[in-house]
């Protein structure tokens, strides 16, 4: 479904991603793990079109999207749950969700999706007319995920969704991701929490200073001694 071929991304003179290649199959949950600053977020930003690739190709459903503007990628069905949530702070919960469905027109479908999201996260329904920035961190993360789901995406990119959350929300977020995976949604996850990410993923890639150094089935990676030592605390 998604094929990333040897992309290189620079911030000015600094090379954040050096020739990374990987792919995500339809219905898969793939995790990219690695230390802070390994280039994980940059890869997601490049797939979404928020960061230009100096070389390499990004192919989505056999279509080269490397040069496509972000909003068109969104219309193809790619969405991003960004690091730090990045809600529209002064819009209400419901307005944030409606913006998520911006590319769709049918109001009946929209209402149906809204109900689906509220079913998934009942707390959002209670707070539907509250201003987004007044939510707690965990609630904001639910809203960020809900907003992404409102577009009925084909591929969801998730950037450090567990970062900065209280443990009970971390579990809830990972349960939600697992649930989406079971429903057949394709997910690409970038996580510092390697243990949790590998526990739910099908496959994983290990990133070090902008390069893929290891890849394979998540269970195998999780039991690899090098991964254990570096990312799972021994």
């Amino acid at each position: 479904m998604l094929r990333v071929e040897g992309i290189e991304v620079f911030y000015g003179e600094f090379q954040a991603v050096s020739g990374v290649s990987f792919q995500v199959q339809e219905g898969e949950l793939v995790a990219i793990i690695g230390a802070n600053g390994a280039g994980k977020s940059t890869i997601l930003r490049a797939i979404m079109g928020l960061q230009r690739c100096r070389s390499g190709r990004i192919v989505f459903r056999d279509r080269d999207i490397t040069a496509m503007p972000t909003h068109q990628r969104a219309r193809l069905g790619i969405t991003l749950v960004p690091e730090g949530r990045r809600l529209f702070p002064d819009l209400t919960v419901e307005q944030n969700l409606l913006i998520g469905a911006y590319r769709r027109i049918d109001p009946a479908e929209m209402e149906e999706d809204l109900e689906r999201i509220y079913g998934l996260f009942p707390v959002l329904k209670e707070r539907r007319s509250q201003i987004a920035k007044t939510l707690s961190g965990g609630e904001q993360q639910m809203l960020a995920i809900g907003r992404a789901l409102m577009s009925r995406p084909q591929l969801i990119l998730m950037d450090e969704v567990s970062l900065g959350l209280m443990p009970k929300y971390v579990d809830e977020v990972f349960r939600t991701i697992e649930g989406l995976h079971r429903e057949g949604v394709t997910l690409l996850l970038v996580e510092q929490n390697a243990r949790k990410a590998l526990a739910i993923a099908d496959r994983g890639y290990v990133l070090e200073t902008g390069r893929v150094v290891m890849e394979g089935e998540a269970a195998r990676l999780a039991s690899d001694p090098r991964v254990k030592k570096a990312y799972l605390g021994g």
Binding site: M48, G49, L50, P69, T70, H71, A74, R75, T79, L80, P82, R86, F88, P89, D90, L91, Q95, L98, I99, G100, Y102, R103, R147, S151
Partner: peptide, 21 residues
């Protein structure tokens, strides 16, 4: 109007939502 508000609050994420900013 909603898209205008969203764009002024976070232009990058507005484009992620499919808005032609």
């Amino acid at each position: 109007g909603l898209a205008m508000k969203a764009t002024s609050q976070d232009l990058e994420i507005a484009s992620v939502m499919g808005i032609d900013t």
